[in-house]
Design a protein around this nucleic acid. Structure first.
Ligand SMILES: [Mn+2]
Ligand SMILES: [Mn+2]
Ligand SMILES: [Zn+2]
Ligand SMILES: [Zn+2]
Lengths: 139, 139
DNA sequence: ACTATAGTTTAGAATTATTATAAAGTATGT
DNA sequence: ACATACTTTATAATAATTCTAAACTATAGT
């Protein structure tokens, strides 16, 4: 067992999730990276198959991603209307969204400052503010 | 023909769309209101059936909404990941989104001011900024 | 180590939103 | 009125996601 595998076995155990080989592999693909990772289920399935030669059933990929989301290790992103995206950056943050390449890029919370905010409807409170900067190729 | 029907016949003709009775009725449901209207195809279909006793085929509802979107009369909204929402407010603006009731409420562009904005990736330009204030019931 | 059990994976079926198809119906210019 | 292009419609197809139930496996208790 590699050093990173041991790390995720512990992470899974601490979350009350059994460290199966499928979950450990998915952890490695998702969390063993420098930058945050934005992906669709289809993206992830392709990476598991092509870059790691793993044939994990589609139902398991869905199950695992939803389990991780429930445990707070992933955030669902609402962009585009065809399929769900997930984000390994679970903090409150903002995105550049390239409509041409459909790529999401993180923006640190502190790089956006909102000077003026609207008053929420009466009886309602603001839980989170999400800013999306839609970008495209210059010229 | 009612006064509002005449109005939409003209609007459709000016857009190069034949003013069929289905399109005119959908125009009335969508555009004959004070406030902007946020809806899913399913919402609209229910309103047509229950509140107007119109049985317009689902394919026609989709065709019509997409035609109106292409003409710039509707904007697609990416919120939630199950189905598409559309917005009769086609200007660049922001939203409150109540995650409990799944309701969208418009925020005028001028009610939000962004003090600090991140630099877009090189070769990319910002086309639009969308701010979503996720709200929920207080306490 | 053996076993019982609860948790997990899996293939495949079911569901849901959306899009495609193609035949019947309709608006419009002549 | 007629021809024609556009539109509506029922239905089928597609695609993402969820459900199901049987086989498999991690783990706690013996
Ligand atoms: Mn979405
Ligand atoms: Mn869908
Ligand atoms: Zn992100
Ligand atoms: Zn709006």
């Amino acid at each position: 067992m590699s050093i990173s595998e041991v790390k995720y076995v512990e992470k899974l155990r601490n979350s009350g999730l059994r460290p199966t080989k499928q979950r450990i592999k998915i952890c490695e693909v998702l969390f063993n990276r420098e930058k945050t990772f934005h992906f669709s289920i289809s993206d992830l399935t392709k990476i598991l198959q092509n870059q790691h030669n793993l044939k994990i059933s589609l139902a398991t990929v869905y199950n695992t991603i939803h389990a991780f989301q429930k445990k707070g290790y992933l955030k669902e992103i609402n962009i585009g209307n065809d399929m769900s995206y997930f984000d390994t950056n679970t903090s409150s943050h903002h995105h550049f969204y390239d409509q041409q390449t459909k790529e999401l890029i993180d923006i640190n919370s502190q790089e956006v400052e909102i000077k003026k905010s609207p008053t929420p409807p009466s009886g309602k409170k603001v839980d989170d503010i999400e800013v999306t900067f839609r970008i495209s190729k210059k010229n």
